[in-house]
Structures are given as C-alpha cells and as structure tokens.
Design a protein around this nucleic acid. Structure first.
Length: 423
DNA sequence: TCTGGGGTCCTAGGACCC
DNA sequence: TCTGGGGTCCTAGGACCC
C-alpha cells in the first residue's frame, strides 16, 4: 500500500502579511488587524504577540497600554485578503494540482507524485514561489495524515533553521516529536477536550496516540476516534478538492452603538438580509428558510435579552425583496421595546442550487426576479456596495459599525492601485 | 399480571475551526 | 466609552408515524 503524503500550507499572520505587502516599512514591526467593528485583534504578527497582544485583545487596550501602543493597527479589509488568498492559491496549484482550500489562509495538498524528486525540496520551492510572486510568507507541514500535517505545520513555524518546511513522514522523528507535543495545540482538540484528557492523565499527542481503545471510547466521540487513528498515521480525513455545498449562510453584525428603536433594527436587519440575498446569488443558491435574531451586548451590565424567530420562504428564493419582506415580518415578532440591542443578524437555511428549485403550485413566482437581481448586482458591483438599495435599509445607518483604519483595496479597485513613480 | 420496536424529522446546545 | 463573524459536525431528546 502506498502511503499518503499530505502537506498543509499556512500563510503566516495572513491578514497582517497582506497589509505588509503594500507597506513594506512595516516588516519586522508589530502589526495587528482588528475584527469587524474594530472590536478586537484577530491577526497579529510575531512582534505584536511578543508585546503581549492576544487573539481577541480589545482595540482600546492596545491603544492604551504603554508597550502595546506602538503597534500598527488596521481595520479588516476582506476584499484585499480574499483577493490575496486567490493569488496564493493560484501559485500553490502550479506546484500541487491536488489541492483543497481549507480556509482563507490555509491549503491542504497531496504530494505523492513528487516523492522521487524529494517532497521537502518540492515544498520548499513552492513556498519560495508563493513568497516571490505574492509577497506572502508561509509555513509548510508534511505528514501521512492531515492531523499530522497540521502538527508539522506548527513545527515549521516554530523551528528555526527548518526553512519554513517541516516533515513528519519519517516514523522515528514523528514518535520523538509526538511525545513532546501538547494536546491543546492539536487540530480538533479544544478547551473542553483538553480538560477531559488532562483529567485522564493525557497531556501529549504521543499519549493520545497510544491511548487504549476502551479509554478512547470513554473519552469521546467519533471525532476523537478519528483523531487518534490519524495520529497513528492512518488517514481518515480525505482531501476535499471540491468544496461541499453550503448548508446555510449568515450575515450578522454588532452595532457601532446600542440600538433601541424598531426602526433602526429594521434598517439593520434589512441591510443584512439584502447582503445575504446577494451572497446566495453569488453562489447560485436559493433558501427555503430564514431566521432573524437580535440580542443585547453580553459585556454590558444591562438586562439581557436574546430573541430569534424562524420563517419559511415559499417559493424558495434568493430575491432581495422576498427575503427582506419575510425578515421584516419576523423582526416585528421578535422585537421588544425598552431593550438596548448590541447585535442582530439573519441566517438563511435549507439552501439548494437555484437549478433545483422545487415546483410550487400555491405561491406566486416572480418571473422577472432573476433579471432584476442581476441588474441590481451588477450596478452595486461597479459602483460599490448598496449604491442601489431598498428604501427600508436606511440612508444614514447610524447603527453602522466602525471601520476607521481600513487600508485601500490595492488589488481590486482601480482607484486604489498603488502608483510607482520613477525618480 | 400484562404495556413494542423502529424509524424519521426537528430543535437545541455543545464543541470546534479559522 | 470600547470585547468578531461565519461556518461545521455531533448528540440528545421530543414529537410523530406505522
């Protein structure tokens, strides 16, 4: 039986690296990128980590703290990151056509074909090409299963002198490493599992790998069993080259400041509903159900409230008007006065490819919908999001989030393309 | 005294991921 | 003053059906 060879390519501090590509003066300086609403740090460079900034450190703490304040802070710019991600993928595919896009900054590939020329050398060449052609630094971990490739990737980033590539294909090395590797750093082992395993005396990946079957059953689920087999080098999680069809899609946001009025809530929900409909059209799907929710800010010391209501969409649709209509009906049901809301959103469920739309005898169809929506989308694509919108979405959107330090869309907006001048 | 068994669907909640 | 958003999978329990 021929052995699998998985590699995981992971972009280093991806969002920060994207910002650095266009501001090279920030290399070797602490940089963070904030969440939506400029709430907290979601990406940090090693220099920022060294200052004590953690994943989720609030923005105001970074700004106030004496050592942290030297950090360069960016609002998140998903248009830029999405485009840079696409460029990284394009380079990786040239070196490894069997490729799964695992997240915006991670790709799994299979490398069996490169065994003769040397898998590690090939990975190194790929990594250098990604850096040269996109400006994004990466780490590559190699192993006989995805779980082991993930661990190898962790080592690639934290082992000086490995040139950004680490392989766990060789069994001897693997055993030595796993005996030292803490379980809480493993893929699929979160807080709850760590506590459970620690209580059983399991602290390292090596101990987990050698756990007797009886004890393993006591510990957990199918997922745990799979992880243990993967640690033993038996591949249970295959490469998924074709992304599975989404089951649902959500648009949710915190408010820039607390919202109390039904009017503003309706504006926000209809804005999210319109964005949800747009996302569905982009993916060529329709929804059979929509859920609307709103809740208070859990960090504030005010009476807490969480409300949610679900309604069906018949016929299945991705038409902005129908989605907003149902969302407004649900909003009025859920809404309660006298509450300071912190966040709201919509979730579209029961998604189907638009081509598989169920026939429906009892509800009116909108024959002109596809063309109208197409026109709406192309106008907004050319002139910017919500250039053309439904009246209910509101014009001044006072509830909107902050995003004060967003960088330009260097690679996707012609007005934002950097200009190089010869001196 | 005796009181089936198996299946589906739905929802809620937990855990985990990036 | 200020603490993200968007996903997946699994399990348990209730309702309902034959």
């Amino acid at each position: 039986m021929s052995e699998h060879i998985f590699a995981l390519i992971d972009c280093n501090s991806f969002y920060c690296s994207c910002e650095r590509v266009f501001q090279p003066a920030l290399n070797n300086k602490p940089v963070v990128v904030l969440s939506n609403n400029d709430g907290c740090a979601i990406a940090r460079t090693p220099e920022a980590k060294a200052l004590g900034i953690k994943m989720g450190t609030p923005e105001f703490m970074i700004r106030k703290d004496k050592t942290m304040r030297q950090t360069h802070i960016f609002s998140s710019n998903y248009t830029l990151y999405g485009d840079m991600s696409q460029r990284v993928q394009d380079v990786v595919r040239e070196f490894a056509p069997e490729c799964e896009v695992y997240s915006i900054d991670e790709l799994f590939v299979k490398l069996e074909k490169y065994k003769l020329i040397g898998v590690v050398e090939h990975a190194r060449a790929m990594r250098e090409a990604v850096l040269k052609w996109t400006g994004i630094p990466t780490g590559v971990g190699i192993g006989p299963t995805k779980t082991l490739a993930k661990i190898a990737n962790h080592l690639a980033k934290n082992t000086p002198d490995c040139g950004g590539v680490f392989s766990l294909m060789e069994e001897g090395t693997r055993n030595l490493i796993l005996d030292e590797f803490p379980i809480e750093e493993m893929w699929g082992i979160g807080k709850a599992s760590t506590a459970k395993l620690n209580a059983m005396g399991i602290h390292t990946a090596g101990q987990l790998r050698d756990m007797p079957a009886r004890q393993a059953r006591q510990y957990g689920t199918v997922v745990a069993e799979r992880t243990i087999l993967e640690l033993r080098g038996i591949s249970c999680i295959p490469l998924e080259e074709i992304p599975p069809v989404r089951k649902g899609t959500a648009v949710t946001r915190s408010f820039g400041k607390p919202v109390t009025s039904l009017d503003e809530l309706k504006q926000a929900i209809s804005t999210h509903a319109a964005r949800g409909a747009e996302k569905m059209r982009h993916h060529g799907v329709i929804a059979g159900r929509i859920r609307v929710f709103m809740h208070t800010n859990k960090y504030r010391n005010t009476p807490q409230f969480y409300g949610v209501e679900c309604g069906s969409l018949r016929p299945y649709t991705n038409d902005t008007r129908q989605i907003i209509r149902e969302a407004m009906r649900l909003t009025e049901i859920v809404f309660r006065g006298g509450i300071e809301y912190g966040k709201c959103g919509i979730i579209l469920e029961d998604l189907l490819p638009a081509s598989e739309k169920p026939q429906d005898l009892f509800s009116d169809d909108m024959p002109h919908s596809p063309n109208l929506m197409k026109a709406l989308d192309s106008i907004n694509k050319r002139h910017g999001r919500n250039t053309l919108q439904m009246a209910g979405m509101g014009l001044n959107k006072k509830w909107k989030q902050r995003s004060e330090r967003r960088s330009p869309c260097y690679t996707t907006r012609i007005d934002d393309v950097p200009i190089v001048r010869a001196i």
